[in-house]
C-alpha cells in the first residue's frame, strides 16, 4: 500500500494542473484529406474554466477545400466564412504554446490528435504527444464505476451532447469550436467530481 500512495503522490493534484480543452471543426474525419476549419481552446486552471484565456480562430484551409456531402451540415462553416481567416501555419504556434503548458483535454481524443499530429508535422513543428485526458474514456470509467456500485448496467452515452445531458449540464448550441471546448471542459469537471479523482494520473 505504501508504494501505491507513493505513486499517487508523484502525480500532481488535479487543481494544480492546467488542462487545455481543445476542439477542432474539420471538413471531415480523415486528417489526410480533410482540413481544419476552426480551433477553440479554453483552460481549466485551479479547477475553474477561464473564459478570459479562451483562444479561438477560424482557419483558412490550404489548397482545395474538400467539400463533401453533408460536411457543411456538420460544421456549419462555408468556404466564404474561412476565406479571410489566417492559415493553419500562422495559428499553430498559439495552439502549440497552449498545449505544451499542461494537459490536453479532448472529447474523443483519437480524431483530434490525428489532425493535430498531421498539422504539426506538415508545418515543421515537432509533435511531442502531450499528456491527454479524454472525456470519452472518463465516461467509460464512470459507467464501470456505476456498474460496480450497483447502478444500471448500460453503455455510456459517448456523444458530447448526450453525455452532458446525462450529467445535467446545460444545452449549448453545437458546431462552434470554442463552445464545444467549453462544453468538454464542463463535462470534464463533472466527471472528475463523479470519479472522485484527485490526481492527474487518475484522469489520464
Amino acid at each position: 500500500m505504501k508504494g501505491l500512495s507513493h505513486f499517487f503522490r508523484r502525480s500532481p493534484a488535479w487543481e494544480d494542473t492546467v488542462f487545455w480543452s481543445l476542439d477542432l471543426e474539420t471538413e471531415g474525419l480523415d486528417p489526410r484529406r480533410h482540413h481544419i476549419l476552426s480551433v477553440g481552446m479554453v483552460p481549466v486552471r485551479r479547477g475553474l474554466i477561464r473564459l478570459s484565456e479562451a483562444y479561438a480562430s477560424l482557419v483558412r484551409p490550404s489548397g482545395q477545400p474538400t467539400v463533401e456531402n453533408g460536411a457543411i451540415g456538420a460544421h456549419h462553416l462555408r468556404p466564404a466564412d474561412t476565406a479571410d481567416a489566417p492559415d493553419l501555419a500562422s495559428i499553430l504556434p498559439a495552439v502549440k504554446e497552449r498545449i505544451e503548458e499542461g494537459v490536453l483535454l479532448l472529447h474523443h481524443a483519437p480524431i483530434d490528435l490525428g489532425f493535430l499530429r498531421r498539422a504539426f508535422s506538415e508545418n515543421g513543428h515537432e509533435w511531442k504527444k502531450p499528456l491527454v485526458v479524454d472525456t470519452v474514456r472518463l465516461l467509460y470509467r464512470s459507467a464501470s464505476q456505476e456498474r460496480f456500485l450497483g447502478g444500471q448496467n448500460t453503455d455510456p452515452e459517448l456523444n458530447l451532447f448526450a453525455a452532458r445531458q446525462k450529467f445535467h449540464l446545460p444545452l449549448y448550441p453545437p458546431h462552434d469550436a470554442l463552445t464545444d471546448a467549453i462544453a468538454t471542459a464542463e463535462l470534464f469537471l463533472a466527471l472528475r467530481s463523479r470519479l472522485g479523482a484527485t490526481r492527474v494520473s487518475q484522469l489520464t
Binding site: 475553474l48 474554466i49 473564459l51 464542463e186 463533472a190 463523479r194
Partner: peptide, 11 residues
C-alpha cells in the same frame, strides 16, 4: 464581463 467569466462545477 463575458470575457472575464469563469465556470465551475460542484457536486
Amino acid at each position: 464581463a463575458a470575457g472575464a467569466m469563469e465556470i465551475a462545477f460542484h457536486p
